[in-house]
Amino acid sequence: MYPSWSIIIPVKPGGEVKAIEALKGMDYPHHLVEIIVSEGCRPSCQRNRAAATATGELLYFLDDDSQVRPDFLRRATTHYADRHVAVVGGPSLTPPSDTPLQQAFGAAFSSLIGGGSVRNRYRLAGAARSAAENELILCNLSFRREIYSGCGGLDERLYPNEENELMDRILHMGWELIHDPELAVMRSQRRRYADFVRQLFTYGRGRGEQTIVSRKVNCASLVPSAFLLYLLIVPFLDNPVYTLPLLCYAGTVAITALWEAWQRKMAVLIPFLLLVIPTLHLSYGAGMVVGLARPRFSKASSQAEVKLRRVQL
């Protein structure tokens, strides 16, 4: 017996939902699937409002441009046969049709020095396995509806990082989270360098705000901010020995750029990566500082305007 699913897609007012086209080809009984498009300007609220009206036993959150594989619901369903599993998701991959700059963004995210502990969100690595929030991403993530609702859903004060905070709570309640690379979706990276800078600043700010809400410090997430502080201080230090960490960093970035370009057989990525990887660290680090110092918590999130519509396949 197949379980029923509610697929929830947040979108800006009037925005195009490119994910629908791929959903039309999914290999799952269509009568057991409802698709809810949630329009608004606060994604956390949009997802919660849609989840509150959902009728499916399982919730699947996609972004408006997530391109799924035909068998994604069947594969996710197999993991939920284990009653200890509360969350299932997969990575978000950069499509080969993206520009070299976009490919560099994706390569930076999936590299060890760029993505670090979250790099598996952006690459195919290993087999299906138990995971923590650092391997899962909200553009390709499912929950048992009863657990999602029982935990109060996403904390609407947060965006982004709302899913990380929720998954951390679920994990510490004793439930299991699954990362399955075979559930990968395709999503294009930001088109412009300035958009990438804003994206990473927002990610860092979201992590800072999550730290305040959860009162849990992820030491790895503080490293970019520490690096930014080091760069601001090092010009005022007289001893040349203090520049050694910077030289080591530059060498590591260069090696990473060469390796990622060789892996993809795209030499054109090298100069882009030499710029993109430091940008990733510095933008994230600056965002983290701002998120910790000036969180954007809003008491009016419950008043956010959200419009829901159901899409027939």
Score class of each variant (00 low, 15 high):
H179M: 06
L59N: 08
I170A: 03
N218Q: 12
G174T: 08
T211K: 01
Y193Q: 07
A293T: 12
T279R: 07
Y193C: 02
L292Y: 12
K265P: 00
L282I: 14
R129D: 04
T243I: 01
Y148S: 05
R145C: 02
A220T: 11
D98P: 03
V253I: 15
H30R: 14
V185Y: 07
V87W: 06
I8N: 05
P29D: 08
Q210P: 00
A128D: 04
G150H: 10
G15D: 08
A226H: 09
A286T: 13
F61P: 00
T243E: 10
K299T: 12
V290P: 00
A19N: 05
P95E: 05
Q199T: 12
A76C: 08
S283I: 09
A108I: 01
S188P: 00
S92V: 15
R207M: 14
G106Y: 11
L177W: 04
R129G: 03
L177F: 05
G114E: 04
G153L: 08
P160S: 09
P224K: 09
A304Y: 02
E156L: 05
A300Q: 14
V311L: 14
E146F: 03
R47V: 14
K24I: 02
L124G: 02
P3T: 08
Y28T: 07
A51K: 04
L23D: 07
L138P: 01
P43S: 06
R192G: 00
A50P: 02
I137N: 02
I255F: 11
L244N: 03
V118C: 11
L158T: 09
Q189F: 01
R121A: 06
P96S: 13
D71Q: 13
A51M: 06
G150V: 09
E165C: 05
I212S: 04
A50C: 05
R191G: 01
Q189I: 00
R310Y: 12
M1T: 12
D27N: 15
L247I: 02
Q46F: 03
S301A: 14
T55H: 13
D27C: 02
R123N: 07
L237Y: 02
G40K: 07
P100Y: 09
R215E: 15
P100W: 07
A51G: 06
D195P: 03
N48T: 07
A76E: 02
S283A: 15
E146Q: 13
M167L: 14
C219G: 00
G153R: 06
E260M: 13
P96W: 04
I178S: 03
Q46G: 01
L280Q: 14
R49V: 13
V185K: 06
A19C: 10
L158H: 10
I147K: 08
T77H: 08
A86T: 07
R190D: 11
V197C: 13
L59E: 06
P224A: 10
Y203D: 12
R75E: 10
T94L: 03
